[in-house]
């Protein structure tokens, strides 16, 4: 193999087409599920996906351990991970774009500012633009579909700063970025124990973040009246933080796999791609959070 040529082309494989099958049944299943029909096809798809991805990654890890992947292949993996993260950045960009658009243009227009003054006087009389939107246009006209929150997630003032959960979350995530960096450094110097310890701390911080966010959502739904249905503020708030939270879970999962691999001694100072890729992902998640913290919470 590797001796035959300087290139490595993998054997034919069933894994990708099975992955495609699982994605296909997830799409079909999700379509059925959101319409209130059977969740079984979705579940089958997810299960199959979990199995094939597990096989896929263990195959690649196995190939690597057997020395079949040379430096060039690793470079391809590195690039792939980089561009994948870029695509994730663009996904978030769509939602940030939506947030900026409604804050800067749509809500003021509805409130009668700027070019579209007639919008307010003919359709939404009584609605005034403010951000966060605490009273939706619908609600102002006596509707009940979109009812704004009693409280929002913005900065509560210095007096209550210690009760402000997003601040804690920022601290948690920033720390975790730092600990994952220490772990990386440790592995580069061959210090496995230090690597394992700091990686474990990182994962724990990630989980703590998720727990805090869970608490925040719970509060939003139970006491603040802030839900997905509370108009554009709830919409942008939950979509942005929700997708971020989902990515934190994903990143924490990736890192815990790397932790297991670290405990099994998979990594070498010059060979730790799986870990490095996960840690880039983690840094990306962290950077997105900073954006959220500023635009959704501090200025929100």
């Amino acid at each position: 193999m590797a001796s035959e040529s300087s290139y490595y082309v993998p054997e034919n494989s069933w894994i990708p087409v099975l992955t495609a099958t699982s994605l296909g049944s997830m799409a079909l299943g999700a379509g059925l599920f959101v319409q209130g029909k059977t969740p079984l096809i979705l579940l089958a798809g997810v299960t199959l996906l979990a199995c094939v991805l597990f096989t896929w990654f263990s195959t690649v890890i196995g190939e690597n351990m057997r020395g079949m992947t040379n430096a060039q292949v690793k470079r391809s993996f590195t690039m792939a991970m980089g561009w994948f993260i870029f695509s994730e950045v663009m996904f978030f960009a769509a939602f940030f774009g939506a947030l900026f658009y409604v804050r800067v243009l749509a809500v003021p227009w509805l409130g009668g500012e700027g070019e579209k003054a007639m919008t307010n006087s003919l359709l939404w009389q009584g609605f005034s633009a403010q951000w966060p939107v605490m009273q939706t246009p619908d609600q102002v006209l006596g509707g009940t579909k979109f009812v704004g929150p009693h409280e929002n997630m913005g900065f509560p003032g210095w007096g209550k700063v210690l009760e402000w959960l997003p601040l804690w979350n920022t601290i948690l995530l920033l720390t975790s970025s730092w600990t994952v960096h220490i772990a990386h450094h440790a592995m580069k110097h061959g210090n496995r124990t230090r690597f394992n310890v700091f990686l474990a701390i990182t994962v724990a911080l990630g989980l703590a973040f998720v727990a805090v966010q869970y608490r925040e959502y719970h509060e939003a739904y139970t006491t603040m009246g802030l839900t997905l249905k509370s108009g554009i503020y709830g919409t942008t708030f939950f979509m942005l933080t929700g997708f971020h939270g989902f990515h934190v879970c994903l990143g924490a999962f990736m890192l815990s796999i790397q932790l297991l691999r670290g405990l099994k001694g998979h990594f070498k100072p010059d060979d730790q791609f799986g870990f490095e890729a996960s840690s880039w992902y983690w840094h990306f998640v962290d950077v997105v959070w900073l954006g959220l913290f500023i635009f959704v919470y501090v200025l929100g």
Binding site: F146, G231, I232
Partner: peptide, 15 residues
């Protein structure tokens, strides 16, 4: 129940 594209909730179809 979100309102990205619904003015009644503060969104905008043009978004």
């Amino acid at each position: 129940g979100t309102s990205f594209f619904n003015a009644a909730g503060g969104g905008d179809p043009v978004l």
